[in-house]
Amino acid sequence: MTATSMAGGSSRRRIRRGRVVLHAFLITMSLIWIFPLAWCFFTAMRPLSDTILHGYFSWPTTLNFQNFIDGWTNANLGYYYLNTLIVAVPAVIITLILASLVAFALTRVRSRINLFLLMMFTAGNLLPPQVIIVPLYHFYLAIPIPKPLSSNGLLYDQYIGIILIHIVFQVGFCIFVLSNYMRTLPKELNEAALVDGASIFRTYRSVILPLCTPALAALGTLEFTFIYNDFFWALLLIKTGSKRPITSALNNLQGQFFTNYNILAAAALMVAIPTIIVYIALQRQFIRGLTLGSTKG
């Protein structure tokens, strides 16, 4: 008895020592992880004249939020946030609707072509976008789009064009995740609905979709940050500077002839803030969205 309690005590002490080391390690790593962002913040708080004269690695003579104010006004960030929302909100919603429809149909009807379709969607999602950019650009100039949807009659240089390419590229991932999710739902639900005489669309709308809410919420959060963070498509497919999303607005601050890095640092932080907020607020959905995709398989 004494022996065991002694052994237990030492092992507990060893565990405690282990815990201390573990926490020390994790805290060090956390500091390293957070540092680049903190440094960016420090730079953003300093006036350009201060850093030109003393260098970036110097004790600050002045710290203020002026660069944030200048960045906000010079880059017109408020306006570009709105641009991003105009693209991201419909893109996320339509992506989720289309993806859930496909996922439903593919899980509902068992067929040899299912696997092929699923592969086609997912592979499209995984392809490096550079593989298709040049032809895509010409498609965007060639395909006519009626007036209310497009102010110049094309997909090019239009919000709808950007929304569309986001949908096309993201729908594969969402189909994959949702079809995995739907497969975990009890099959009897489907059958019961059908026996009740519900149409296939009603089964989708009233039976399956409500059950998918957790997966949809997770995917929605994830897709929002994906689309929010993109700047590649807008750079390519939007000509009008004032239609570009927030991430490319950063480029507007990088002049060929003059760049103020301190303002740029402030603007970069402001660009990052919405996704950080979304992440903190909807953490659970977020991580779930990421993990649903790759672990259910």
Partner: peptide, 21 residues
Amino acid sequence: MNPVDHNTFQNQIGAYLQGTP
């Protein structure tokens, strides 16, 4: 007016002039 940042404007000039400049 449609101002576009210098580098982007330059990189896209060919596409821009063929599109809807």
